[in-house]
Design a protein around this nucleic acid. Structure first.
Lengths: 160, 160
DNA sequence: CCGAATCCGACGGGATACTG
DNA sequence: CAGTATCCCGTCGGATTCGG
């Protein structure tokens, strides 16, 4: 692959002013070069898809079962009001659902009835994703105190 | 807390047209209501901070050691070119670094020299975060085939 | 070399109205 | 009720310039 020459260039650049950089740097760069964590890579695209205002909440709720869009909107909106946040708009809700569906995280089931009815639920892949999200959330909650004190210290040292 | 009346309202709404929803739904809603996954919550703010174009790459590289901004910019930009992406601008780089620093994920060390020199490296908390990011990335890579075929199937059924 | 300031295009996300 | 289209605004992110 094209990475070898690149890694050599990086090595030359970085060791220049800091000769003691060697092993761990090399393995890390190699990891990134092989897997490609650039903005276009699939991992980053997935992270971006989930890293927005509503996805953590939406997907976590969806993990509880099957929902119609109007139900989901109401549940998500009510739950977000706990934190004094606004409601999710229908526009954003359907857009996110379609994104999840495209990547295979949710399944869409539509009936030809009047009035129309559509159900959304997670695929097995989606359930795996939610499991990861829950791990992240739990870690964040576990570190909440550390982060908050860091924020406070930073902000205080700013407006001195 | 205010959650109890809210949960009752949600229960009434959701069971309405679907009486078999009970246990798992309730525990999930309770989890979300207690931890608050709304847009203002700390977990979601952290997820948003990391869920952008460059954070996965930047933080992974930073896990390899100490970097000066110019070094970091060059490394990140070169590595992103593997995926034919653009370079990260200095503006975004420093902004992201400050965000990370504010939440306690990176440490900034500045010298009073001419020309100036500043070093950035991860805090222990930052290293934990990178570990989580690496788990996500590895999961995404593991599921890459599934996701890509889902995307293909979705896109084909669109432009029928 | 560090990084703040400015300008600008692109996108996310909210409100509303409209079709089936 | 599901879904789309339109309008609008705030933020993200890139390019460039300037000061320390």
């Amino acid at each position: 692959m094209a990475g070898e020459a690149l890694l050599e260039e990086l090595r030359a650049t970085l060791v220049h002013g800091n000769p003691e950089r060697t092993a761990t740097l090399d393995t890390t760069l190699r990891f990134v070069a092989e897997h490609g964590l650039g903005p276009q890579s699939l991992p980053v695209e997935i992270i971006q898809l989930v890293g927005d205002r509503w996805s953590a909440l939406m997907l976590t709720v969806l993990a509880a079962g099957t929902f119609r869009p109007s139900e989901l909107q109401k549940v998500v909106s009510l739950l977000s009001h706990i934190g004094n946040s606004n409601s999710i708009s229908q526009r954003v809700l359907t857009a996110k659902l379609r994104s999840y569906e495209r990547l295979g995280f949710v399944r869409r089931t539509a009936w030809d009835t009047v009035p129309p009815r559509t159900d959304y639920d997670l695929t097995p892949l989606g359930h795996e994703l939610v499991k990861i999200i829950r791990d992240i959330v739990l870690w964040c909650l576990d570190k909440e105190d550390d982060v908050r004190s860091a924020i406070q210290a930073f902000d205080e040292s700013e407006d001195e």
